[in-house]
Amino acid sequence: MSKEIVRYIATRFGQLLVVVFVAVSVNFIIPRLLPGDPVQTALARLQTSGGAANVDIQAVSAAYRARYGLDAPVWQQYINYWGDLLTLDLGVSFANFPEKVSTMIGNALPWSVTLLAVATLIAFSVGSLLGARLAWPTAGRGIKSLVPFLMVLTSIPFYLLAIILIYFFAVVLKWFPPAGGVDTTRIMRLDWATTYDILEHAFLPCMAIVLGNVGFWALGMRSQMVNVLGEDYITFAEAKGLHPRRIFVWYGMRNALLAQVTALALSLGSVVSGAVLVEVIFNYPGLGSLLYVAIRGQDYFVIQGVVLMLIVSLAVLLFIVDLLYPLLDPRIRR
């Protein structure tokens, strides 16, 4: 590793820290911009809706006051907030008192991360390969007829796709379970049956995300690849007598991918928010469902915790993409 690469990584890591710092601060400030006492307001609302009838409101309120020192000056609260975060203490849930928010997020996170990572990876690689193939001059009629199909897929929202998939594959054909992350009666163990069960449940949500994204990647890659194939270095590669496969991968795709990775970085936000909806529809036990249930139940600290989690994971993902850049494009190594 040369000195400039170390400096590059250090710079990007610094940027990551700044993003996280700002996100945490905004997450702290916004609730405090609201008039009144958020704990009181939230508890009062719960009480009137009767959603927490068998919860000791006074006990909850007292717990929060003690825990967050809400009578202390704002700067003191801010410092306490950071202290809590660094010890992974995100407060407790109203709806499931006294379960800790950090535990709830910890349970949901692996589901979301695995689903989203696998689905995005599949959509990105299949889409990019398909798009590159579409731009290649020898693309046949068969593959070209996919274009309108891909355009339809990109224009259908995730959640509609999810509903269509559930209807056909879970209701009509009964090939896959319609909802959940794992069979409700399953005792989680590290064996084949459990793995199969998880995969079976993950298939449809994964397909919804893949189908919803693959068109975007394919169409983007096609236009990038068309541009790249017009470059002089492609002609020169042909003149060198290289095999078309080598030109396709190392001269064509390799260069077209640069813009694709930029698009990936830019679209991560919408991919994550789209996945939230998919999780809700499939009742998948990930962050998206947790957030949805928390919003419906006005479970204030859970919402705050999940949103913070989403922002931080986005920042981390962008950091990873940033680290990939110089590996892909030597011109960025400054």
Binding site: D232, T235, D329
Partner: peptide, 24 residues
């Protein structure tokens, strides 16, 4: 044709600036 290119007949390209693959 691929075998003949470069081995028997080679191109010195017009835009040498852009004739080299930027990522290799």
């Amino acid at each position: 044709l691929r075998e003949v290119r470069l081995r028997d007949i080679a191109l010195m390209p017009q835009g040498a600036m852009s004739s080299l693959n930027p990522v290799m």
